[in-house]
Amino acid sequence: MSRKVLLIEDEPNIAEAIRFLLTREGWQVETHAEGADALQVIRVASPDLLILDVMLPGKSGMEILRDLRELEDMQGLPVLMLTARGQTRDREMAENAGVSRFMTKPFSNSEMLTAVRDLHAQATQS
């Protein structure tokens, strides 16, 4: 069973690191670095999991998440959000927007993998 993750992140080095980690876990990893057209990309890719950066060129991760949760068929998509700002206000905003998991950069690789596994398990159970 193929598991697909979509990673939206504008820092190429971070994207490369996550791709490396998740590929080894058996995920099919797609990446995208723009905020503006992110919603379309998500629709096209139709991933099992979405990893979303907050600070994106064009449109912020917060807005993308909010718009995403408006869509009927995207209610159940697990979303892991990453931010480099790490302020409590950002975490609250993300939770209100309907985030599944919120992580502050820098994170440890095991932390990332655990989160991805948990989210996937929850999604498949329900």
Partner: peptide, 11 residues
Amino acid sequence: LRTPMTSIRAF
């Protein structure tokens, strides 16, 4: 600061 540190830590 966090952005480059994320890459460094991950790699």
